[in-house]
Design a protein around this nucleic acid. Structure first.
Lengths: 194, 194
DNA sequence: TCAATTTATTGAACTAGTTCAAGAATTTTA
DNA sequence: TAAAATTCTTGAACTAGTTCAATAAATTGA
């Protein structure tokens, strides 16, 4: 199976022989997901862990006011999973929806568990990736506390220019925790400057 | 060595025999930290991973305006570490300071690495704990996006009543990402209601 | 291809939270 | 135990960001 990008991704974190990489990747299956399709809905139990090969997803929550709050976007080389729901087989609090025609590689819970047993290095791999994720979430929280909306918008479009071009302003607003209208005003101000 | 609370903490995540627990805990050393003392400063390389036995710490960053931004408080049974700095031996972006006379159990990088080799279950343990941490940071971000300052204050004091009583309002304000003055106004409003 | 729907823009009125300043209360230090 | 330092409180003026409403632009669907 074609799983080059996943192999490259894993190799960034842990040294793996090519037979180890093959063993790991044998557990992943490819799946195409059409734009608009959900691969996980709030309340469902997450039975897979996915890696984006192509396309883009939004991962969001519905807040207490019924509004969609985008937690993050997942394009090529990003993970889509609801760790809590996947590990503990409890209802998911997140929704994962394709915002482009996409392809993912996914692994089931059973296969993942077998893989952890078969190859303990996989524990290390996911430990390291999770620790990286913690750092990233901490940094995002600090950015939210120290930067104003305009600075956060600027940070987003310069840090993730590819994503910024592929998603709507409304979605960027939701991700940044501000209103669509305010994003529009920020953009107007930025256009003037140039 | 006395390391009951650490053993109990580990046992919550992975099933470990008492000899495994003992093996793990042999790698931890106890240390007393006086109020005000730093166990890690911005720029230093984090050479340990700590677990709070008693007392309380604040983990904070200095933002672009020179202001202290508290990322979290760590009291009994919480971890104090700078994952990024510890794992990659790069300069820390965080400061960790005792805000009460405290005692911690800590492990050095060398001991931690040996432990991962000796007992692969430790990889799993820290993988699971990191994954829990990711979920917690995600939830906090969503709370920041969906709740106003008053609701966040309320959430904090009801979720962590013990911490709320031990830290100053200024510190709570920093943790919540609002001003000290506004916390004062929220408190006034809440007192009136009762 | 055209109608329907969603998204983007704009402005005016508003509000949650900030800033500044000054005095009161508490904590720390010597 | 007094002096010094920090924290807390309060009010007035301000501002970043919201809300609402209406129109324009873009996207989607049959």
């Amino acid at each position: 199976m074609e799983c080059k990008s996943l192999k490259a991704h894993f190799s960034r974190y842990v040294d793996l022989t090519s037979s180890e990489l093959t063993l790991i990747c044998e557990n992943y299956q490819q799946k195409n997901v059409a734009k608009g399709e959900y691969i996980l809905r709030n309340g469902e139990i997450c039975r897979f862990e996915g890696f984006v090969v192509s396309g883009c997803f939004k991962i969001y929550m519905i807040d207490m006011h019924g509004n969609e709050k985008i937690l993050y976007f997942a394009a090529e080389d990003w993970w889509i999973m609801e760790i809590d729901s996947f590990t503990n087989q409890i209802g998911s609090s997140l929704n994962v929806q394709a915002i482009e025609d996409s392809a993912i590689l996914f692994i089931t819970k059973t296969a993942k568990e077998r893989l952890y047993e078969e190859l303990p290095k996989v524990e290390r791999l996911f430990r390291i990736m999770s620790q990286k994720a913690v750092v990233a979430w901490q940094r995002r929280l600090v950015r939210n506390h120290t930067m104003n909306a305009e600075q956060r918008y600027h940070h987003f479009v310069t840090s993730y220019p590819d994503i910024a071009m592929r998603v709507t302003n409304k979605q960027i607003a939701s991700y940044l925790g501000i209103t669509q209208e305010f994003v529009s005003k920020i953009r107007k101000k930025r256009l003037k400057k140039k």
